[in-house]
Computed example of a mutant assay.
Amino acid sequence: MKKNLLNYKGLYGDNAQHELGNFVHHELLATRSKLYNWEINEHLHTDLFQIFIISSGEGVLIQDNNKIILKAPCILLIPTNTFHGFEFQSDVCGEVLTISEQFMETIFTNSPLILLELNKAKQYSFNSDNEDSLNDLLYLKDKIVKEITENNTYKQLCLQSLFQLFFVGLHNLNSFENEKETANNRTLTYFHNFQKLIKKTLPESKLIKEYANDLRITPVHLNRICQSLVQKSALQVVHDYAITEAKKYLVYTSYSISEISYLLNFKDPAYFSRLFKKQTGFSPNQFRSSTIQKE
Rank of each mutant, 00 (worst) to 15 (best):
V220W: 05
N213G: 10
E58I: 04
S111H: 06
W38T: 00
K9W: 04
H43S: 02
D214Y: 07
F103T: 00
E210I: 11
Y12A: 00
I51S: 00
V92R: 01
N119G: 15
K267R: 14
L222P: 00
I144R: 01
D91T: 11
L202D: 09
T291V: 14
F176L: 13
L207T: 10
N184T: 11
I107D: 00
P73S: 11
V96M: 06
L235E: 03
L263M: 13
L116Y: 11
N172I: 04
Y8D: 00
L197D: 07
Q164I: 02
E95G: 10
N130P: 14
Y36W: 14
F167M: 03
I208V: 15
F86V: 03
M1Y: 09
K180V: 14
T80Y: 08
T149C: 06
S55C: 06
K122A: 06
M104F: 05
T291M: 15
L116T: 04
Q293M: 15
I68P: 02
E295C: 12
E39D: 08
L202I: 14
F103E: 00
T82C: 11
N193A: 07
S100F: 08
D91I: 14
I107T: 01
V238A: 00
F52C: 05
L229Q: 01
Q236W: 07
L162V: 09
F287S: 02
I68F: 06
K122C: 09
T153A: 06
S133Y: 07
Y12L: 03
D91S: 13
G85D: 05
S111E: 13
L113E: 06
R186P: 02
N37H: 07
F166D: 01
D132S: 13
E42Y: 03
G281N: 08
K278C: 12
T291C: 15
N172A: 13
N4W: 06
T106A: 11
L137K: 06
F282K: 04
D268L: 14
L11C: 05
F166E: 08
E39G: 02
L264I: 09
F163W: 11
Q63E: 14
F126N: 09
K277M: 11
Q279N: 10
F276R: 04
Y12V: 00
Y190P: 04
L29A: 01
S256C: 14
E179M: 13
K206R: 05
N110C: 02
V168E: 15
G57H: 08
V145M: 12
E259N: 04
E105I: 07
S290G: 12
P112H: 04
S228F: 08
S289F: 09
S283Y: 08
Q293N: 12
N65D: 15
G59V: 04
L137P: 03
Q195C: 10
K9R: 07
K34S: 01
F272T: 00
G21M: 14
E117I: 05
A72Y: 08
R216F: 04
Y255V: 10
E147N: 09
Q102S: 08
K199V: 12
I53E: 00
F126K: 06
E131R: 05
L113I: 13
T291S: 11
A72H: 09
R32A: 03
S254L: 14
S161L: 13
K248V: 11
N66K: 13
K294I: 09
D14M: 04
A270S: 08
